[in-house]
């Protein structure tokens, strides 16, 4: 079984984002990590290969600093990595999909491609779908339960209100995953050391026959989300407080 896991190196979710210029941020201040949803894909791939044999290849299109995320993925158990180097943090999902497709094809077709359901930096929610369209594979996303039966997978996703949709999908396929699928393991120290020696194939987009970066969606402005300045504290006894809260919500805010 050959499994690819597409990952992205993103600012730690606990990081404060300091803006710089019209549409960028101070990335030197940020700790970068594996996109949290991608970790479920790595764990699932490693578990499947432990059971069935084969190999797990992690792949990213990203800047030089994305090496850290690839090493972390290999510490979890991925066998090797492909790093398509780019200069930009924000890539158009159509471009990313083209790059990933070319690199995956060059390496040899997999049985499964895992991705996170989306990245927590651009929150674009499109790369798994566009990658599947490029490869002509079927795709499912936001999967939190998965069973592989030969050349088919049965995948479950939540569709709101606690309802769950069960989909059957033929392999090879792109499977976007989310929390609930598994509990990603914490790499042990020897695994972290071993990961430093695992091979990373560093390539450029021109190696893949792609001439230049293109972008059909451009980030033109990045601004801090408006923050509230602090709560108006409601005073008095518990009864008085809840009465006042109800009055505020009904009369002042008109939301009840």
């Amino acid at each position: 079984m050959k499994i690819f896991v597409c990952i992205k190196s993103v600012p730690d979710t606990a990081a404060t984002i300091k803006l710089s210029g019209e549409s960028s941020f101070e990335d030197s201040d940020c700790k970068f990590v594996i996109n949290p949803y991608d970790e479920y894909g790595i764990e699932e791939a490693v578990t499947l290969v432990e059971k069935n044999g084969g190999e797990v290849v992690v792949i990213t299109a990203g800047r030089a600093s994305a090496d850290g995320a690839l090493r972390s993925a290999m510490a979890i158990g991925a066998n090797r990595a492909i790093h398509v180097k780019t200069e930009e943090q924000f890539l158009d999902s159509s471009f990313t999909a083209k790059v990933l497709k070319a690199a995956i094809e060059r390496d040899g077709m997999p049985d499964i491609i895992f991705t996170g359901k989306n990245s927590v930096d651009t929150e674009g929610f499109q790369t798994p779908y566009r990658l599947a369209a490029e490869l002509g594979f079927p795709v499912v996303n936001e999967i939190s339960k998965l069973k592989i039966n030969g050349d088919k997978a049965v995948a479950e996703r939540e569709i709101g209100g606690g309802d769950r949709e069960v989909l059957e999908i033929s392999l090879p396929a792109v499977i976007g995953v989310t929390k609930g699928l598994n509990e990603p393991r914490y790499p042990k120290f020897p695994d972290i050391m071993k990961a430093k020696k695992k091979p990373v194939n560093l390539i450029t987009i021109s190696d893949l026959g792609i001439d230049e970066l293109f972008s059909k969606s451009r980030l033109v402005k990045l601004e801090s989300a408006p923050e509230r300045s602090g709560a108006k504290m409601i005073q008095g006894s518990v009864e008085a407080q809840v009465k006042e809260l109800i009055r505020i919500l009904k009369e002042d805010e008109k939301v009840l």
């Binding site: 549409s23 941020f25 651009t122 972008s215 969606s217 451009r218 980030l219 033109v220 801090s224 989300a225």
Partner: peptide, 29 residues
């Protein structure tokens, strides 16, 4: 995806970036 507002004439949208810490204006070609 998941826009907070859209400008259909200008073909742009405002959406959350960095898990809601920032708002991004995205121009679509």
């Amino acid at each position: 995806s998941d826009c907070i507002s859209v400008d259909l004439e200008g073909k742009s949208a405002v959406k959350s970036h960095f898990s809601g810490k920032t708002f991004a204006t995205v121009q679509l070609d």
